[in-house]
Amino acid sequence: MDNKKLKSDTTNKINYYGHGIPYFRNIEIKGKLIVIEGPDSSGRSTQISLLNSHLEANGHAVLNTGLKRSELISEGILDAKEHHLLRRRTMSLFYAADFADQLENKIIPALKAGYIILADRYIYTLMARDAVRRINQRWSHNLYGFAMKPGLVFYLDVEPRELLRRVFEKNMTLDYYESGEDLGLSDDLLESFLLYQQKIKQQFIRMQKSYGIIPIDGNRSIESINIDLQKKIDQFLSKDK
């Protein structure tokens, strides 16, 4: 028992996707970062709350993060979206700043303290959105070169038609940005939604290999998806001990 505990306290250096954060070079972390990606209504938050309980029941300290949740910047993004029409690169950098704030002020400190972090989306959604808006992929990849590589990344893969059904069931209406309305894909919002979600999905397929994203069939029931995720996460955590 003591032996096991000692081992699990082993610290690691942070791995980055690119140039990293030079002034964090020597920081050591004990916790794990696990990311759940997927479009709206793919079941991310349901899965995260189930995983959260499961991990806590197993005695882990768990922290949740997500996009657009930084103290400093998230309000500014909402405000800017409301009052100004932001162009694609401005939007991209604004989200990057929001992400950086959370990474430095929330994610990394919690990892240092040994938390398991469940991230409700990460840089991949942001890069997929950029790519669909025809922002150079190498530029986005470099932009997120300061991001740390998570231990696990899941992508809840749901057919756009199924997403559509779930969105209507929940909200009765389609969201402007989630339908990619700014792209002018179609005059018909419903068609625009399907085209946009298909494009985002293609970007996740493209990124799968190079970023080590694990696709999870999200068309199934909540329970079967959860069993799948739990098994993979438990394996990952025990492997490290």
């Binding site: 954060i21 002034y23 400093l72 910047i73 100004h84 932001l86 162009r87 694609r88 690169r89 401005t90 991209s92 950098l93 604004f94 990057a96 700043a97 950086a100 704030d101 430095e104 002020n105 300061f146």
Partner: peptide, 19 residues
């Protein structure tokens, strides 16, 4: 932080550049 400082100025620049 240095990174958020940098990115917010980059956002400001991008807005003026694109606009």
């Amino acid at each position: 932080t240095p990174t958020t400082f940098s990115l917010l100025h980059a956002t400001d620049f991008a807005d003026r550049y694109e606009r």
